[in-house]
Amino acid sequence: MTTPPNAAPLRCLVFVFGVGGCSAAGQLDQTPLVRPCAVGDTACAAAGLPGPLAVGARQVLAALIDVDGSLAPRRRYVSADEEVIGVEGPALVGKYPGTAAVLIEDGDVVLDFFHVDVEAAEAMTLHRRIAGQVDPSPMPPAFDVFAGEEFPLLFSIWGGAADLSGDVGDDWTVSDERFELLQRGTPRERVLRAPDEVGAEGTVTVTALGFSESIALHVVAAGSAP
């Protein structure tokens, strides 16, 4: 970024450095952006969007406007390219791979803006949480669980090395109804509860954006090595 050599009072330059590289705020530095996160998931809350918006995904963003002279101004998202990013009220919708600015406007005045990447999904992986943290390693295709054990499962959608963002309209199924799937945590997360019957077997499958991942589950007695 270059500024004209004769046109840069010190106070203007300060802002160029001050607003750079803040992924969780608008570029005019007036808008922290927050996505819905599970209660207590502070890492999620602090990270803004973890990656580009997936094509076909919908992401609600709460724009917390901080403007001098107004407690809570009106705000409306406006996409710079509706073919790349659509706007549905508080949500952004990924439509086509690319990059577009999203303006936050109060009437005809721009309060802030940010750029959003949209990328096509290339892969899906299933993960579990260990001690509250997401295990980045994909789950193995087969998995032993203790009788009555509960543990969270979640999936990621990938575009290259980027963990793509957005609600992708996922569908979870389990082959044996004795295994229960509870909708808790983040939108992409389920809590699996294994039955008490040792030896029970089932398969959990999640489908989204044309991708499907499954894990086969086998219930073992508590105290046995899984």
């Binding site: 160029v16 570029q27 750029h115």
Partner: peptide
């Protein structure tokens, strides 16, 4: 005088 306040995304320009 006109000065630039913001950064372009990696795949774009604003220079």
């Amino acid at each position: 005088r006109v000065t630039v306040l913001t950064e372009a995304p990696p795949t774009g320009h604003a220079e």
